[in-house]
Nucleic acid binder design. Structure first.
Lengths: 266, 266
DNA sequence: TTTTCATTGCGTCATGTTGACACAATGTAG
DNA sequence: CTACATTGTGTCAACATGACGCAATGAAAA
């Protein structure tokens, strides 16, 4: 094997072995969580991905569920480990339960390249059903950290996502579709924008998620109508052109809207 | 044991034992599906429940997932077994993954009453994460059938649901909340009403699900605006007062609306 | 047979929401 | 100090929604 950085590979192999050995006793069998972590930076929607340690492919941050751990807690843990963040918006959105999504051969090859020989009945090689979660996080607060099975962890522009392993592309697409739908009856932005932000920034966020241009003036009217924003007396300095007002979310009203919904159709 | 109907108990015990023996090899561990099956009859929203074989409590139809069975297929199978129906609207809506929702003692007591002694490491006594599905079915086409662990299977008025086992009440509530939300951006009724129905019947369905009175004339205007209905030349006969027109769904447009959504907010 | 009345079909009107666009004010760059 | 991109605010027509009127229907009561 082309082991240019022996220490690195050593450590990796040790921790992978540790995972493999402990996993059967520590984790619920057959069930995993995968997280689609969205961020927003420089007017672009980003998603946090992990580089596969062998292949030129990427993966969603994921993990297993402790035997006594709530599934939601497992997702929060994965998020904490990859981003360093504690309190963020996290929501399950879909279960992916096709037998075909688990590819035993895929993982066998991986472990072989790690120099690890395992038997076919190893827990991690079995069929896994995964619960998809999506998270909205504040880009600037995230410190991306790879996991045991990956060599790096970085943000990708949602429009430039590279080739993903297994069915992760499908999971990502479903997360984005869910996010777009939720935009219709939930406020959004608190976990994606900094504390203080401008109306054009909020609009860019919506436009990016929806992949659609919105009218500046109508957007402002509608958003303000939700009554979840607080306009500050300050304006944003150091930007070209007219300095826009800064806004912050009125958290009380924001959370109320989160619970009650925005566009009650009936 | 107070075994008044020996034959019944015998058969039950045999099939329960068969389930317990075969389960570990046939099913995915730790994962189950539970179905909230909604029907509509005599202007009332109904839900199909199973009577627990010992307790004076009821349960949602549920089941386990075959080792090579898609999770959705497992839910369809449960539905087929309890209702006799094949093609129905079925959708996963939430995963219930708290460790506390699995009560080992609960099941141990049950099996003891069945006269079945098991060890604590039996697969069915372990923690289970369950995927909640909800189904909309045409009441008149359903032939309710109990499962191995139940003594009967009947429809309950949604407003008179009895005491449910474990966290099934929570699952039911979440299903109803989801259904109400989906009403805002999805057409509904095709799987709940007969082939031909009247406008007042459709309105009653909406009112029942939403638990809210709607204005007759505004309802008609809005529904017709969706362009998913076909008005027939016939009217409904044999009813008091003025005989209302019959409608049927334009399936092509109905399905298109199902995929594209109704109220695109942004 | 005629009257009563709940119900249905169809329509109106005031109000609220949305889409499209105008114009003045602001701040940077040339 | 002028040009220009950008922001703050407002207008207006089109459309959607909520509240309600009224005539037609058909079974039941008088």
């Amino acid at each position: 094997m082309n082991n240019l950085v022996p220490g690195f590979y050593m450590k990796k192999n040790e921790s992978i072995s540790a995972l493999l050995n402990a996993g059967e006793y520590n984790f619920l069998p057959s069930l995993s969580v995968d997280c689609v972590i969205f961020g927003f930076h420089e007017n672009l929607l980003k998603v946090l991905l992990l580089k596969h340690r062998h292949l030129n492919m990427w993966a969603l941050p994921g993990g297993f569920i402790g035997k006594d751990e709530p599934t939601d807690a497992a997702a929060y843990r994965v998020l904490k480990e990859r981003t360093g963040l504690n309190e963020i918006f996290l929501q399950q959105f879909h279960v992916f339960g096709e037998p075909e999504r688990s590819e035993k051969e895929f993982h066998l090859q991986d472990l072989k390249k790690d120099g690890i020989n395992v038997t076919e009945d190893l827990w991690i090689l079995q069929r896994f059903v995964t619960i998809g979660y999506y998270a909205l996080v504040e880009f600037s607060k995230v410190s991306p950290a790879p996991d045991t099975l990956s060599e790096k962890c970085i943000w990708w522009d949602i429009l430039k996502v590279p080739s993903l392993i297994l069915d992760h592309r499908k999971i990502l697409d479903k997360a984005l579709a869910t996010l777009r739908m939720q935009l219709n009856y939930q406020p959004i932005g608190y976990n994606l924008l900094p504390e203080k932000f401008t109306m054009p920034e909020l609009q860019k966020l919506y436009e990016t998620i929806l992949d659609k241009k919105l009218d500046r003036r109508n957007f402002q009217r509608k958003i303000l109508g939700f009554q979840i924003l607080q306009r500050l007396t300050e304006t944003k300095k150091g930007v070209p052109h007219k300095s826009p007002y800064l806004y912050s979310f009125n958290l009380k009203k924001y959370n109320h809207a989160l619970n009650e919904g925005l566009n009650v159709g009936w």
